[in-house]
Simulated assay, not measured.
Amino acid sequence: MSLDQKIANVRTLLGTVQADYAPAVFANSFGAEDMVLTDIIARYYPGIEMFTLDTGRLPEETYSLMKEVTERYGIRVPVYFPEAAAVEAFVAQNGPNAFYDSVELRKTCCHIRKVEPLKRALRGKRAWITGLRRDQAPTRKDLTETEFDADNGLQKISPLLDWSLADVWAYLKQFDVPYNALHDKGYASIGCAPCTRAITPGEDVRAGRWWWENPEIKECGLHPDKRHKNTVISRLPADLSVPGQSQGDKKKRVQALIKSHGS
């Protein structure tokens, strides 16, 4: 499938989400994939809100990109922070870099800094949009384009799920979309500064995230590994076109597919 067709499919899906799942919100981490969605949503879907999570440990380059997005698109993305008392208690008990000490402490830190703020950001929403791709990590192979997120009680949409990394960068270059300067320094996936490093050629794209852990467990809790959950899920067809089908009928088909798995 060509990049143009993939873009068209993303726009069809986002158009349906904006029309039928308001209030919908895009969880923006300002990574390469999320900058594709930032560009599309900012230009075409003003009804879809955005937010980002500031863990308090982000790299300076991420803050610089936030400023660039504001200047480029004329939008200021709302920021959700972790609860200060929870961070203070965790650091007081375990130290500022306890996430290096054990998987349990790392996941506790992620829960405080990411999962809890996410839940606040999603409160009252009917759908949330992510920039997840299936080939990013072993924990994401079984993800679906649309699924009901039982943990947060709303629909979860991943429009770029079947995009390749080459597709992402082709889009960014074609539309001159700003991106995190760390990508040019070998950082394929960017999170908190102490938990992110550059990768070497040939390494997995998420090898620089929590590099001291087994790849099979490298998630922060925002996107639980579906191999270990019994959630009813569904995937929208990559090609939503049917010969002779009108745009109105196509939209109704997408809407029905989404709704059939949100109940």
Rank of each mutant, 00 (worst) to 15 (best):
C195D: 01
A198P: 08
T200F: 11
D204S: 12
K226R: 15
R206G: 06
I199T: 10
S189K: 04
Y187L: 09
G186M: 07
N230Q: 15
G186E: 12
W210T: 00
I217D: 04
E213H: 07
R209A: 07
L182R: 02
V205R: 13
D184R: 04
H228F: 15
G208C: 07
D204A: 13
I190G: 03
G202K: 01
R206D: 10
E219C: 06
A181C: 01
A198C: 03
N180F: 04
K185A: 11
E213Q: 10
T200E: 13
A207W: 10
K218T: 15
D225C: 14
G186I: 09
I233W: 14
V232R: 14
G186T: 12
N214K: 12
A188D: 10
Y179Q: 10
N214V: 10
T231S: 15
K185H: 08
E219Q: 06
C195T: 03
S189Y: 02
A181E: 12
N230C: 02
D184Q: 02
R206N: 07
N180K: 06
T231V: 15
V232Y: 08
D225G: 05
P224C: 10
L222G: 04
K218Q: 12
T200N: 13
C220I: 02
G221F: 08
G202V: 01
A181F: 08
A193W: 05
W212H: 07
D225I: 13
L222R: 11
V232T: 02
L182A: 02
R197P: 12
D184W: 00
N180C: 07
P215D: 05
I199L: 01
P194Q: 04
I190T: 01
N180Q: 10
A198L: 00
P194Y: 02
I199E: 04
N180V: 01
G202A: 04
G202I: 04
V205Q: 13
G208H: 03
G186C: 00
C195S: 02
N180G: 07
P201D: 13
G221I: 11
H223Q: 12
A198D: 08
S189A: 00
C220W: 07
K218P: 11
K218S: 09
E219T: 13
W211R: 07
A198W: 11
K218C: 03
E216S: 14
T200M: 14
I190F: 04
P194N: 04
R209V: 08
W211K: 05
P215S: 04
H183Q: 14
L222P: 09
G186Y: 10
T196H: 01
K229Q: 15
W212S: 03
W210S: 05
R206Q: 01
